[in-house]
Design a binder for these strands. Structure first.
Lengths: 259, 259
DNA sequence: TTGTTAAACTGGTATGACCAGTTGACCATC
DNA sequence: GATGGTCAACTGGTCATACCAGTTTAACAA
């Protein structure tokens, strides 16, 4: 019996959700003025407090700009939002994963991971080496349970970012992890190869132990290539298969440049 | 006469500011229960709506967890917050820059920039090449105005991230830019050398024009080293100079508990 | 043209009430 | 002793109604 906590959403959460979807999926172009708070209350049938809480959050997320007395307008989230928004961008309305966004996540991951490993090797404490060993040992023990491996791999990288003593990496990792967990189930086959490459994880841990920054970075880079290759293939396959179904769905500003 | 828009803060902004500072700067440890909303109203002398708006934002930022009926408690922001928080972490209470955080930003920047340049070279459109040329030309024209160069450099990187067609990089760049602009004035001497290396920017733009991903990446990596070297020197100088003033300020938990 | 004024917006703050979920102490039951 | 029910006292969530404060517009005066 697999039970999980029931989802509970407050009104302001629902309002936030609804408005952010409208903005992110392009139904409200940047510059568009939002209805006034009182008008939103009428439309959404909620009290003004709920609307204001949602608007404040949208403002913090960089999706809208609120001006006392002067109305509220939609911003261009690509220029003002930050990494938090990835979770929302990762899924279409129908719940399927946006592979373009997924590719972005994988590319960023591939760029950061080697540097995280490098810094971790240079700055790790003795105790952290032991913790890494424990995680790698646990991975070896659960070699055939992909789901468990995925959790352990996340733990592995979490540890490395802590070792790196780089707060920017830690925070970025938190954000990426949320996105990552969202598409985890959808991409098990893509990540399977990477997760099973226990030797690579071991090489990283070993390099960290000997304070070999370059070695750790190279091993991490090699490990990342599994997932990167997988997502690229998936993307290529999907693009050729959907080109005939829906052509020109995205505003493709003349991208034939790859001749 | 240099005038700028006057800062205007709403009550909920002030409450958010105050509570987030308390949490981020460690006066409220993770797990600590927050006073109830009504109690906060009494202490802060504001109405409950203002408090609730602030709490909702803190929750979204990953600093607290709110539970209907069950109270509100402080989270460990290093595990739950995302990149937005960098702006707040970058400064101590007294307004001086936290160089450890600044170093983190520079390291992340150095890891991402080469990959951004690489992808930009592979995916840029013809029009974007022209835009890059314009920015580089503008930089050449303002070669002696460091402040103008800084703005143009940001514009240069903004363009590259757009060229890279990687939404994760774009969003991360937005967040980093905020942090970056915060310490801009404090770090002009650190960045001066990098900003004046016009030849490097030109090399990147050229590589992007010829779709030379590797070349663009290498040029970007070389460019980043200016700033990285600068911040490292600054940090080393400052650490040796303050070691006698305040020793052991950081909680160095020599973690070898698993012996 | 310029500056003033007033009305009609907008968002911001305040209050008091009530709804809804959680907690813990108490107590009956088994 | 463990289980489950009840109730009171919390907690956060929702609501309606004021009124304050800043912006925009247009009419109007100098």
């Amino acid at each position: 019996m697999r039970l999980k906590p029931v989802a509970r959403k407050s009104l302001s959460d629902a309002v936030f959700e609804q408005l952010s979807q409208e903005i992110v999926h392009g139904r409200m172009r940047p510059g568009t003025p939002l209805p006034s708070e009182r008008a939103l209350c009428d439309v959404l049938r909620v009290n003004r407090g709920a609307v204001r809480e949602a608007l404040k959050r949208l403002s913090q997320a960089g999706l809208i700009a609120i001006q006392h007395g002067g109305g509220t307008r939609v911003l261009d989230f690509k220029q003002t939002a930050s990494l938090d928004l990835l979770n929302r961008l990762l899924f279409h309305h129908d719940g399927t994963v946006d592979l373009r966004v997924a590719r972005s996540v994988m590319e960023m991951r591939a760029a950061m991971a080697p540097d995280i490993a490098r810094l971790a090797a240079l700055r790790r404490s003795p105790g952290q080496v032991l913790q890494l060993d424990e995680v790698v040992a646990a991975m070896a023990a659960q070699e055939h349970d992909l789901l468990a491996l995925q959790v352990l791999a996340l733990q592995f990288w979490d540890l490395l970012t802590v070792c790196s003593e780089n707060i920017a990496y830690q925070l970025a990792f938190n954000g990426l992890r949320h996105s990552y967990e969202g598409m985890r189930e959808a991409l098990v086959e893509v990540m399977g190869e990477e997760l099973r490459d226990l030797a690579a994880y071991r090489r990283i841990a070993e390099a960290v132990r000997r304070r070999d920054g370059e070695g750790a970075g190279q091993s991490a880079q090699a490990l990342m290539q599994h997932g990167s290759r997988g997502i690229l293939q998936l993307l290529a396959a999907l693009e050729t298969s959907t080109d005939q179904q829906e052509e020109g769905e995205e505003d493709e500003d003349d991208d034939d440049p790859r001749t």
